[in-house]
Design a protein around this nucleic acid. Structure first.
Lengths: 366, 366
DNA sequence: AGGAACGTTGACAGCGCTACCAGCAACGAC
DNA sequence: GTCGTTGCTGGTAGCGCTGTCAACGTTCCT
């Protein structure tokens, strides 16, 4: 048998075809669109491929077909747990399929994002997932010119490039503040870090809600460009408290900050929620088991990633969703840290009081 | 000019070569090994490429050269913050270079790992980063037969496939227990979740240290295969306490569990560290700002990822490290939760006591 | 019976790049 | 002046696969 092998001993499509007694192109079709083959040939090629342990050469396929099976994903941070949940959803949705995920980290820089986008687009990805709606003009133009489906994730806005899935950070922040109003809180501070566009919109939502109630004051807002951390939450809260000693609640732009605020309150023997209520954002797992349990705005991060990837793959394969913009919503999960009555938690093992030292209650709520 | 373009309007190497007045192969060399060209041609090709906005076609390059510039990374989890730090290191080290990272998630299954490994190897990656040292026999064989550099990360062991970077989880656990011994603790419980090989080795280290001191008892160990979480830490600690009410310390296999234990202690009004000392593992950021601050075993996760990727790239390019196995070590960071004297923390704002209710001290320590 | 329509198959010609080897000039050694 | 040696450059021939189009057999219609 003069059948030639590639130097590295790899099995090529031609070998499979020969063993199956079909032409290479027929074997090729088997791997891309099995339904197009007659049942007889289909089984012949299938068993030949299995027998030889054939694995397609993706580079050759990409070169010949002039497209890749790569889905590019641009996210701003690998550290932030928020994105790890989204990513997990994306990877889960793509698993077992033909598409592979190519991840890049923009580090919260839209210029970096533009650079990476250019890089991605040059390789003709099958599809693209990008974070947010605040691209540079240049990036935006590239995205619109790209001949592949694109999903923007993390938030929704008025003008999608293509598809979009997320929720309104503005509305979510307003809902969080509304919840605090319902609990009788008036002097509500805002603590934010990093101040990326989504955090900025949460701040905007907070500001508008406070203004609507006639309660907004600039000194209630403490923000920094520094990346978020639990420790930072404590530090920012310390600042806030120095500016506004009569504070009765804090809305934190994320849960890490909220945890830091909680710890700082403990350190200062400030009773939570009696003296100060705390509300976080994202509803990370630990919020439900902190003492007191911490109120947060739940966002569907895993689902967002998973749905984004699923929609994208569908669109790549020609089945565009009838609904290109998906609002996944949010939900304020009310817990002890903002509700005074300690209602939702598992019953305190140690009896009444849940170990919170009572301190003079602010007069503003019941 | 009859210069033909690819249908999609993309610039090819041939166009660059033509504009520069050299042969395609010379232009090709410019992108792979500029030093091989005379200075004159080098600048000609460079400016031609820039003028045309040339971007190499990686698929064609991979097909022609029979190798890819992909670094495969196999990690067991995307959720675990531990891996997000390692990943960040890997991405940082690869950024700007020619290699792209291809990430896959084994979900803590060595069979899944084997499957993914087969997939990766079929595409001839430039290098591979795999987690841990517990591969299947089949995986191990594939790794040894692979003709690319390989780095095993997260731990070190006796028999590296190629390169290896990590630390001894066994020794780290022994050090944590030794620290608790030094603090006068004797009835030290172990709390572990997931029980992947590295957590298992931490347990082994704990067991051996306890046995050496003649203090080991099976009922001091509470583990579960469930994925880790803060809430789970509280639940496991509850079990442990039911089995062993005289407990005076808990060594947690990770920091999430430790935080859960801390919250559970607070819920039960158990004084930390007076009544029970807590030690975690990994030293995540929040450990330093919890109240009380939490002792943990610091591991160099970011550095591990960064160094692994750097070593790998060096090896791919033919510069093998003189030291193929790197022990990055660990460090027990002693904080309030295990040291009784509240020494290292920022001074308590609220004065003495840091709001911990004193409960009867166990007799075993000073 | 003729032909249209469909489903299935194969031949051919590249996709854009690089491995390989040959060639050429410049230089020094003998 | 001849020979190697070195440094640089180019021609040729694929890498393994798929797009395109033509051709075939079968069925069903007129």
């Amino acid at each position: 048998m003069g059948r030639k092998r590639t130097k590295s001993g790899k099995i090529r499509l031609a070998e499979v075809a020969e063993l199956a007694g079909v032409s290479p192109i027929t074997a090729s079709r088997f791997f891309r669109n099995p339904e197009a083959l007659s049942v007889a040939k289909r089984t012949r090629v299938e068993s030949a491929a299995k027998e030889l342990g054939y694995v397609p050469n993706l580079a050759a396929r990409a070169l010949a077909s002039q497209r890749t099976e790569v889905i590019g994903v641009l996210i701003p941070s690998l550290t932030n747990n928020v994105f790890s949940d989204v990513l997990r959803g994306i990877y889960d949705a793509s698993e077992g399929g033909r598409y592979s995920i190519q991840l890049s980290n923009t580090r919260y820089s839209i210029l970096q994002e533009e650079k990476l986008l250019r890089l991605f687009l040059a390789q003709k990805p099958a599809g693209l997932i990008v974070t947010g709606i605040d691209q540079t003009t240049e990036s935006r133009a590239m995205l619109e010119a790209a001949d592949c489906p694109i999903v923007q994730i993390m938030e929704i806005g008025p003008d999608p490039v293509d598809m979009m899935i997320g929720f309104s950070h503005y509305d979510a922040a307003r809902a969080a503040v509304a919840h605090l109003f319902e609990q009788g809180r008036r002097r509500i501070g805002f603590v934010g870090a990093r101040m990326d566009p989504r955090v900025q919109r949460r701040l905007d939502g907070y500001v508008s809600a406070m203004k609507d109630a006639g309660l907004f004051e600039q000194r209630l807002v403490v923000t920094t460009a520094t990346p978020t951390s639990v420790t930072l939450g404590g530090a920012l809260f310390t600042d806030l408290l120095a500016r506004e000693p009569d504070l009765d609640a804090v809305f934190c732009a994320n849960d890490d900050l909220a945890l830091g605020v909680l710890f700082e309150c403990r350190r200062r023997e400030i009773a939570v929620p009696e003296q100060i209520a705390i509300v976080g954002f994202n509803d990370l797992e630990f919020m439900a088991s902190a003492v007191p349990t911490l109120t947060s705005v739940r966002t569907n991060r895993y689902e967002m990633g998973k749905t984004a990837a699923t929609m994208l793959i569908e669109a790549i394969e020609g089945r565009r969703p009838e609904q290109p913009v998906l609002d996944l919503g949010f939900k304020v999960i009310e817990r002890q840290s903002s509700t005074s009555r300690h209602s939702d938690s598992r019953p305190s093992v140690s009896g009444a009081g849940v170990a919170n030292k009572m301190v003079a209650l602010p007069s503003s709520h019941d």
